[in-house]
Amino acid sequence: MDTSAYVKAVVEQTRTLAEWVDGKDATAPVPTCPKWTLADLVDHVGGTQRMVAMLVGERMSEPSRAYAGYVPGPADSGQWRDWLAEGAAEAKRAFDSADDDTPVWDPSGGAAGVPFWSRRLFGEVCVHRADAAAALGLRYELAPELAVAATEDWLATMTSRGYWENRPDFAAAMRGNGQTLHFHATDAPGEWVARREPDRVVLERAHTKADVAVRGPAAELLLVLSRRRPLGAASALEVLGDRALFQLWIEHMDWVTD
């Protein structure tokens, strides 16, 4: 997916989320983010989209002003649908005004800028829509091709140099000497191999033998990797090889779950 496709999907996924949460109980707990209420979830999605819109729209080279301008959602859940839609539209306008090579700060360590943020907003709303589904007792569905793209975002972000350097707990747990994990979506093209090295986790888009292989529908793979569904409840996933290695990986995929 390119930047425009990611941004189009952000608007569409946000629209679905907005319809789900419209008028709902703001204090409802979010089981997949145990410290969050539904209001916290809405704040996070809409506030992040507005923050990224500021970063991209104003070509920021460092994030302090965007972070300081973080906007919380309305207290009245009856206003959430419009507020979320406005945030996604604001983000779209910002991306429409920029090119992929427009200089914009990003935390990846790879100076990926505009493409990074379009992919990141897409991955964010896909995963957080799963949080809303869990909070509201709704069925979560995501087209296989979109689920592959969201899984790519999750894995690329979690294995980025920036994440490694800014999360010493993650780095300590993930240091290794070449152990490999193979993730394979079975309903759309998508395969990744993560290799644990002493100084980082290397992510490759490849098919190869690994210490553990995890295969199944892309949406199920996304939910388990992002800790939105327990592995034991993911009956469609097949785990071959060192299951304990995969469990260790999941235990440390704790990026936005608290």
Rank of each mutant, 00 (worst) to 15 (best):
M1P: 13
Y6L: 06
V10I: 08
V10K: 06
T14N: 14
L17P: 03
A18N: 06
A18Q: 05
V21Y: 03
D22L: 02
K24E: 15
D25T: 08
A28R: 11
A28H: 08
P29L: 04
V30T: 07
T32A: 09
W36V: 01
W36N: 00
V42K: 12
D43G: 08
H44T: 07
H44P: 05
G46D: 06
G47V: 09
R59F: 12
M60G: 06
E62Y: 13
S64N: 14
S64R: 15
R65G: 13
A66T: 15
G73M: 03
P74K: 10
D82I: 01
L84K: 07
G87F: 02
D100Q: 12
D101C: 06
G109M: 01
V114A: 05
W117I: 05
S118H: 10
R119A: 13
R120H: 11
F122L: 13
E124I: 05
E124C: 05
V127Y: 04
H128K: 06
A134G: 11
A143S: 15
A143F: 11
A143L: 14
P144L: 14
A150D: 02
A150Y: 01
A150Q: 02
A156P: 05
T157M: 13
M158Y: 03
M158F: 04
R167C: 13
P168Y: 09
P168E: 10
A171V: 09
A172P: 06
M174G: 00
R175E: 02
R175S: 00
P189A: 12
V193H: 10
V193A: 13
R195D: 00
D199T: 07
R200T: 00
R200W: 00
V202Y: 00
V202W: 01
V202S: 01
L203K: 04
A213E: 07
R215F: 09
G216W: 01
A218C: 10
S226E: 07
P230Q: 11
L231P: 01
A236G: 14
E238Q: 14
L248S: 06
W249L: 12
I250T: 08
V256F: 11
D258G: 14
